[in-house]
Simulated scan of single mutants.
Amino acid sequence: MSTVAAILKHKGYNVLTVSPDARISDVSAILSDNRIGAVLVLDEAEQMLGIVSERDIVRCLAANGTRTIDMTAGQLMTRAVQIAHPDTTVVEAMRMMTAGRFRHLPVVDHDTLVGLISIGDVVKARIMQQEATVESLTAYVAGSA
């Protein structure tokens, strides 16, 4: 069964992060410029404090209007961040994301941040698994005919 490690091997390990004092206007620019949906918020010791997603920004805009732009990542971030490990299966990651209704999942290995996967990454991996299964079954059936 495919794991989060396989997704990261294909996708890469680069994770964009911001400090808790980064302004939301800057965070928004990072998200837009890099065509990503979330950044992790790390302290000076590289410890994960939270995550800021597009959804967090939109919710804050709805509640606070233009004041949101002057807020900081530390003020706006989601603090209760679920994590995956490299050996977490794709199915487990999908279940976590679906149950928690979030789209981004940090990957931690022995207390070290090693990556960040999105629901799109998980769906892509799942589709690839299903295609491989179909091909295998098709080859089996064709070979036995």
Score class of each variant (00 low, 15 high):
L113Q: 01
E92D: 10
R101M: 04
G115N: 12
V122W: 05
D111M: 13
R101D: 09
A125G: 01
M96A: 05
G120D: 11
V122K: 03
L105V: 10
I127Q: 11
A125M: 03
R103T: 03
R103A: 08
T112W: 15
L105M: 05
M96C: 01
S118Y: 07
L105N: 12
V123G: 08
M97P: 00
L105Y: 00
M96Y: 02
R101A: 08
G115V: 06
S118D: 14
D121L: 07
M94Q: 04
G115Y: 04
A99T: 13
V108H: 11
S118C: 09
P106Q: 14
H110I: 08
P106R: 07
H104K: 04
A125T: 03
H104Y: 06
L105R: 08
M94E: 05
I127G: 09
R101G: 13
G115A: 14
K124L: 13
R101Q: 12
G120V: 06
I127P: 07
R101S: 08
K124Y: 11
V107G: 02
S118G: 06
V107P: 05
D111Q: 10
V108P: 03
V122L: 10
V114W: 14
H110G: 15
A99R: 08
D111K: 10
G100V: 00
D121E: 02
M96F: 02
P106E: 13
R95A: 03
V107E: 01
H110F: 13
H110T: 12
R126I: 15
K124C: 01
H110S: 15
R95G: 05
I119Y: 03
G120P: 07
P106I: 13
D121A: 05
K124M: 09
R126T: 15
M97K: 00
L116Q: 08
A93G: 02
G120A: 15
D121W: 06
D109F: 14
D111T: 12
H110Y: 11
V114T: 09
V123N: 01
A93L: 03
I127D: 13
F102L: 03
T98A: 10
I127F: 14
R95L: 14
D109R: 10
V108A: 02
G115P: 02
R126C: 10
M94N: 01
I119F: 03
K124D: 13
H104M: 03
T112A: 15
G120S: 11
A125Q: 10
V114G: 02
R101W: 04
A125S: 07
H104C: 06
G115F: 01
M94T: 00
R101F: 02
A99W: 01
V123R: 06
D121S: 04
V123W: 09
I119V: 08
G115R: 15
V108Y: 15
R126D: 06
L113F: 05
E92F: 06
L113S: 04
M94R: 01
P106F: 04
E92T: 07
E92R: 11
L116M: 10
H110L: 11
V122Q: 02
G115S: 13
M97C: 00
D121Q: 05
T112I: 11
T112N: 07
G100E: 01
G100M: 00
S118V: 10
A93V: 08
V122E: 00
K124N: 08
R95V: 13
A125V: 10
V107Y: 00
P106M: 15
D109Y: 15
I119G: 01
I127Y: 15
M97T: 00
